[in-house]
Write a protein that binds this DNA or RNA. Structure first.
Lengths: 336, 336
DNA sequence: CCACCGGAATGAATTGTTTCAATACGCTCG
DNA sequence: CGAGCGTATTGAAACAATTCATTCCGGTGG
């Protein structure tokens, strides 16, 4: 493959001049420039990013590590981040931790090797050990969909406690007095905060914590939702409403209930979380708590860029909290 | 950031020895190795991937360029490719062309600069110009969801003509004699092949090409489906069945029909394409043509790896064609 | 006529790793 | 005791770019 030296030889100039043509064309005489460009074209020269990176010390790539790319919510976050990165002339490397601490740790190691200019991460590891270890590399990172645990980094999140309150408050005010909470891995903050919000909403309505029946789940996908739905059917007495930790679970629960002939929302109301595009198209359109995913991805990327570009220590770490919004659809209409 | 030289100094050995500890630990005496490992740990050393790449001439990353990451079908392809790549110790960089030739070209340029070890691509550019230009860099690439145009590369695809036949054959045999085809960008092969299959199925049933009413669409997402649904409603006479080029369109059409009070499948039957997870959870569960997306991603990655690892020219380019499968659900039940 | 000046081009140094020929060292055998 | 051998280690070259101090050159002013 042709290198800068080959181009220099072909054009009859030095390598420094070729480099200047590429990076500071105005510093080169027009006819020299033309000769170099012709040589580049002729040889099909493409500069080597690794060589540039080696010299620069870091790459022009931002990493994004999410919990599950199969969840459209994270795809939206990626979209937002990608747009912001592209505006800054950077690439984004999107990776999946699949909620596994090991995978997360493995990917963080990969990012360090790649000397990425920064990392956006939805932590899978509640202990924060992985990120603590990563901080050593002095590569900036921003927590996504999670409040900052320390003042050492930026974070962008959505108020999950409030989201839980919106969801369950809505169910309670529609006359449902016993609510199942289809949760997920207990070490995820989002899951715990949404439960807390749910309990707060019940308390506000004068209901005790026993009014919330938790149906745990180790994954957060449609199949897990079907399992949860099956377990819900076995509960006696059966709750009259279900709040699901995300829309994938909600779609799965809906399928299970539908298959068992339980009517939604007459017999059981369902509220999901995220308001993914498919929530509105479900068998019974899903009521859901909408999160500004694209905005979150974009803001996170912007915070990261600000930190990464900061030469003189002027960057102030910030923790941005966005607000969720309840979108009411058929799945949670009042009974009767 | 600590480099291999710092580690060597700290451990009192040469850089070559440190490199050996990392890459061929068995070639180093246990106590030397221990000393080096201690130094690595102490300094928090992480080897620089760019420096390795520079030396190796290519990176350990495989690129995947898809048409739309918002479509779960492509997410599944990515999953399959990722798994295969990981088995081989490679990373995957997933990018979105968004069906834009410019973006595709831009990304291919990026891949060349990055010296990726290979590219999996779902072409957005029907003319093949982009890939033709890319071939110059002698980086192997595999076409995904597309048959090979030449013998210059491998390809993995699904028989779209047969998929179209399955879909429309099913509709016709259920008594529908006039079918709308909600298509997409006309320069996509998939779209054309599916139409061809649809026409073949009609012909087989003794119906002419006028039985297929095309509703063109420039995008392939849910919103475009809603637009198409609205246009379908305006057709006189209104077709009694719709075949959509993918499930996102089908979900959008379903929403539009539902909002207008048109009954599915009584008034209009719908068949989608891809059988994404959300098809089964739709307002009316969608009949769809299932594609083995994960398998396709995995096979493509494996073909690419075979080509990339091939030193002695033993690689034979292959074009693998997989078969689709019709999954019948409520959206296409017979009328009455 | 020489010194100086400024813009253009040069070329060597630098970046962090891998690889490989060369070396060093301890051991055995003659 | 020295030659020969095999293993462990070394050190320098190579990779492809960027950067920057230096050189070159034509033109101008003293």
């Amino acid at each position: 493959m042709a290198g800068i030296k080959d181009v220099a030889r072909q054009a009859g100039v030095s390598v420094g001049t070729v480099s200047n043509v590429i990076n500071r064309p105005e510093a080169v005489l027009p006819d020299t420039r033309a000769r170099v460009l012709a040589a580049i074209d002729e040889l099909g020269y493409v500069r080597s990013e690794s060589a540039r990176q080696l010299r620069a010390g870091r790459s022009r790539i931002m990493a994004l590590l999410v919990l599950d790319m199969g969840n459209p919510f994270f795809v939206d976050i990626a979209r937002g981040a990608e747009r912001a990165a592209r505006d800054a002339g950077l690439g984004v490397m999107v990776c999946n931790s699949g909620q596994s601490q090991e995978e997360e740790s493995e990917y963080l190691g990969l990012f360090a090797e790649q000397r990425v200019c920064g990392v956006l991460v939805t932590p899978a590891d509640a202990t924060g050990k992985n990120l603590e270890a990563f901080a050593r590399h002095r590569i900036p990172y921003v927590l996504v969909d999670r409040v900052a645990a320390s003042t050492e980094n930026c974070a962008v999140s959505v108020d999950d406690v409030r989201g839980g309150m919106l969801a369950v408050g809505h169910l309670v005010s529609a006359g449902r007095t016993s609510v199942a909470y289809v949760s997920g891995p207990g070490d995820l903050h989002q899951i715990r905060d949404r439960r807390e919000g749910a309990l707060a909403a019940l308390a506000e309505a004068g209901l005790g914590p026993e009014a919330l029946v938790e149906i745990p789940s180790d994954r957060l996908d449609v199949a897990a939702g079907r399992d949860a739905g099956a377990r819900l059917l076995g509960l006696v007495p059966r709750p009259t409403a279900v709040f699901c930790a995300n829309d994938l679970l909600a779609l799965g629960v809906l399928q299970a209930l539908y298959a068992a002939g339980v009517r939604v929302p007459q017999d059981v109301a369902i509220v999901g979380y995220d308001d993914i595009e498919f929530a509105a198209a479900a068998a019974v359109p899903l009521t859901s708590v909408r999160q500004p995913a694209v905005v979150m991805g974009r803001m996170a990327a912007e915070l990261l860029l600000e930190e990464a570009d900061d030469e003189n220590g002027g960057h102030q770490h910030r923790s941005v909290v966005l607000q969720p919004e309840l979108v009411v659809r058929a799945s949670s209409a009042a009974p009767r």
